[in-house]
């Protein structure tokens, strides 16, 4: 631990397993507080150990209940578990009610589990903007497996694939028509399909239909999605589900696949950081621009077109940057 004294205080506390320090750092990351960047920088070298597994699917299919069971299973195997559970923010008030904790009761009273609820804060795609960074903090904290629950997701909410190395798409029996619409988007990102609530009638048909669709599906790096029937409520099928996740993780270890996936996600992240910064600078430059009002007046009067106005703003941004 020769590097320890050089770590910023917040980072040192996380490494020393201070739960409150971790929680506060997560908030700062969510709030985009620039003062914690040194701590994030320092912690980066200590990450890369955890496996991030996505749990996604439509509203109310049992994602949280499933995670509760997976925690149970993983703890029995001696693995530590971080959970990031995301719920939507209201587009009107910006507020949110984060309710996933109700069903994830296994997270309580066990220091080997750390559960954090996150609001999407206007970010589309099924996760929050800071999800990846929060997972990395849990990784630095020493969690072996990190489970990410997305918001109840629709067809286009596929951003979990930029966060997780394996995504479980959870569905329930009698989603017949919904499965049709899911064929694109959400359906395509599943490495593992989980037909939950298989204690209800229709589960076998649903699993069969899904297997048929999966067999037809696009070939992603040679992997065919697995279909597993589960009852999270009754605690049935969890071992098989986790075996399917592990099979995909093992598959990733072959032929440089994991490195390729990680590379793709890192590219997303680094470019995303730059985009965020440019966006901020653009915002500032627009605020500073006293001529902007006049410029917009001319666009409104059809004296110039929006493209020329954008050209001018862009040139100014480049000059000031």
């Amino acid at each position: 631990m020769s590097r320890a004294p050089r770590l910023p205080v917040a980072a040192r506390a996380v490494v020393a397993h201070d739960r409150r320090a971790l929680a506060r750092l997560i908030s700062a990351v969510e709030d985009r507080d620039p003062s914690v960047v040194p701590a994030l920088r320092a912690l980066y070298a200590r990450t890369g150990h955890a496996r991030v597994i996505g749990v996604t699917g439509p509203l109310g299919v049992g994602k949280s209940t499933l995670i509760n069971r997976l925690i149970e299973l993983l703890r029995r195997r001696g693995l530590t578990v971080g959970v990031v559970a995301i719920d939507p923010s209201s587009p009107f008030s910006g507020g949110s009610v984060l309710g996933d904790r109700i069903r994830i009761e296994r997270a309580l009273g066990d220091d080997g589990v750390f559960l954090r609820s996150m609001a999407s804060r206007g970010h589309a795609g099924g996760v929050a903007a800071a999800t990846r960074e929060v997972c990395r903090l849990l990784d630095a904290f020493g969690m072996d497996i990190i489970l990410v629950e997305t918001v109840g997701s629709g067809q286009v909410d596929v951003e979990i694939r930029d966060v997780a190395s394996t995504s479980i798409v959870v569905l329930v029996p009698h989603l017949g028509d919904e499965v049709q619409t899911l064929k694109a988007g959400l359906f395509e990102i599943a490495e593992v399909f989980c037909v939950n609530k298989s204690d209800l009638p229709g589960a076998e048909t649903a699993a069969r239909d899904l297997s048929d669709l999966a067999a037809l599906g696009t070939d992603r790096d040679g992997w065919r999605p697995t279909v597993v029937s589960v009852s999270a409520q009754a605690g049935a099928g969890l071992e098989t589900l986790w075996a399917a996740v592990e099979a995909h993780e093992t598959y990733l270890d072959g032929d440089g696949r994991r490195a390729r996936g990680e590379r793709r996600r890192l590219a997303q992240e680094v470019v995303g950081l730059v985009r965020e910064r440019v966006g901020r600078e653009l915002g500032r430059s627009v605020d500073r621009d006293r001529d902007l009002g006049a410029l917009l007046d001319r666009v409104a009067a059809r004296a110039i077109d929006p493209y020329s106005a954008a050209d001018r703003l862009y040139r100014e941004l480049r000059r000031s940057g």
Partner: peptide, 12 residues
């Protein structure tokens, strides 16, 4: 509290 813009962790 949500309608007032807060993030409410409801644990029930």
């Amino acid at each position: 509290l949500r309608d007032a813009g807060m993030e409410v962790i409801y644990v029930g």
